[in-house]
Design a binder for these strands. Structure first.
Lengths: 159, 159
DNA sequence: ATTGAAATAGGCCCCGT
DNA sequence: ACGGGGCCTATTTCAAT
């Protein structure tokens, strides 16, 4: 019995990985420049980029905006623990999360905590209000733990 | 005594906020389309975009790549607690973090845990190796706690 | 600061090979 | 996968308001 294949999807060509690396670094890099950098023709590069988007390998292109410039000077990570045995309310909580004001990202975790919320708010008052109004007041929420974020860094693994 | 001003920086014009919102959603949106959507001339829009970049309001444009397509099928959050009183080693750890293989993002926290590492790896073996080789083996690291990520969502607060 | 027009450049689709 | 041609669109600069 041979090893179970780990990648059900066709492996990415090296040239595709190179394209992705460039786009992850600068999403507005012109197609011509990408083509030249990876050593293929612009038309080929364009076709590959389209394919990457259609296959869902590229999920989107986003500007990275400094929250402080938007008046959101405080960032925090909030670990959220939900009550067990309330599936409907858990579902409703999950659906509400991305729309809560100030939520940058939400992670659904395996472990003691069920969710990790990355939030950006104007000040500590707003942080308190966020936790009290949207988390502790929610029937599905059992416990929260908030940690201020001093700073963050992007890694080199493509995000 | 009046209230302390909360925004030392000049407030962002509404048109700038509109531009940022569009670019955060689609960083490759053409300047023409942005200009039309926010109701200004393309040349004006270009000037404002340049100013936003030069002021650091826009920190960059990045493609959002599906880690699974890169063979990184497992994602996790690792809370890292460091030893106190070892500032040099803490600094070296901080400097190494973004370059560790598989690190998507790193958050420097206030609280019981010092760092939160978002990692993407091929499989659980690689996750174990990451923790053992780069974290528990590091002299500055006192404790780690790993939580698998079931899923994540982008919020609506600009990131 | 914002604009419109004009020139440059790049993107894109179809056709070949 | 590559190259070229034709066409369209986008970007960029600049003079003027």
């Amino acid at each position: 019995m041979g090893p179970v294949p780990k990648n059900p999807q066709p492996a990415l060509a090296p040239v595709d990985r190179a394209i992705l690396r460039l786009l992850a670094e600068d999403a507005r890099m012109p197609n011509n420049a990408i083509a030249e950098a990876v050593g293929i023709a612009p038309s080929t590069c364009l076709a590959r980029m389209r394919a990457l988007r259609e296959r869902g390998v590229i999920r989107g292109f986003h500007a990275d905006v400094d929250p402080a410039a938007l008046g959101l000077g405080i960032q925090a990570m909030i670990a959220v623990r939900l009550h067990a045995h309330t599936k409907e309310r858990i579902s409703s909580f999950t659906a509400e999360i991305p729309h809560l004001p100030g939520v940058v990202a939400a992670y659904h975790l395996a472990g003691a905590d069920d969710y990790l919320l990355h939030v950006a708010v104007p000040d500590t008052d707003a942080l308190r209000d966020f936790v009290l109004d949207h988390l502790t007041a929610h029937p599905a929420v059992a416990h929260t733990e908030t940690s201020l974020i001093f700073g963050h860094m992007r890694g080199e693994a493509v995000s």
